[in-house]
């Protein structure tokens, strides 16, 4: 047994609970960091990272280690991995409209491309994934399909999170219709709506 796995086994043995790497995936601005922050604040009392309306705010993988959940007697300890949003295109000009100057926008675009590569590399290294989707957008995008296809190929358990249900134009049922094979939890990370249900499903499906 490799030393890393042995240490993880020891930790699990002595803590009496399972520890997993839980990746938060999705397109830019789906609300991944807002979801990660809610989870981290609820269970360890501090956020994971900064949120912004400007796309690609998260450009490196942000971690919150040893987040322990205990729901209905089911215990789960996880390393929460907030991934950069995965996209097929990055145009620095898109950032100009948010008030960044050309140099800042180009730098952000460069970092965003590296973040996308990093998030993709991590796809093979998570034990489970929350795939966050903006419920006010069309869920049937190639990015979502590619993320889910790769997780499924590796038999990595997935929970779909229909975020932003506080928006009047949100249609979380479209996510259920597009991907009927996955459990879907409807939430608003901004308002903190339905997180109890999310924790139930996480501890139930990933325990």
């Amino acid at each position: 047994m490799p030393i890393g796995k042995f240490l993880a086994w020891l930790q699990t043995f002595f803590n009496g609970r399972k520890q997993i790497a839980l990746g938060l995936y999705g397109s830019p601005n789906a609300g991944k960091t807002t979801v990660a922050n809610r989870i981290a604040i609820d269970w360890v009392g501090e956020p994971v990272g900064k949120v912004s309306e400007i796309p690609h705010e998260t450009r490196v993988v942000q971690k919150k280690e040893r987040v322990s959940m205990n729901v209905n007697g089911r215990k789960l300890t996880m390393n929460l991995l907030d991934m950069p949003g995965i996209a097929t295109k990055v145009d620095y000009r898109d950032f100009l409209k948010y008030g960044l100057n050309t140099k800042e926008s180009q730098q952000r675009a460069k970092e965003a491309t590296k973040g996308i590569i990093e998030a993709i590399k991590w796809l093979e290294n998570v034990d489970a994934a929350l795939v966050i989707m903006d419920a006010s957008e069309d869920p049937y995008t190639q990015v979502n399909i590619t993320i889910l296809g790769n997780l499924e190929a590796k038999k990595i358990p997935v929970i779909l999170v229909a975020n932003k249900i506080d928006l009047s134009n949100s249609k979380p049922h479209l996510i259920k219709e597009a991907f009927p094979q996955y459990p879907v939890v409807e939430i608003s990370a901004l308002k903190g709506t339905n997180f109890d249900r999310l924790y139930e499903v996480i501890t139930q499906k990933l325990h």
Partner: peptide, 16 residues
């Protein structure tokens, strides 16, 4: 397939 799409996106990002 999904894996090729993933690799294509990764390669694409190197040229952006």
């Amino acid at each position: 397939n999904s894996n090729e799409e993933k690799e294509l996106i990764k390669e694409t990002m190197k040229y952006v």
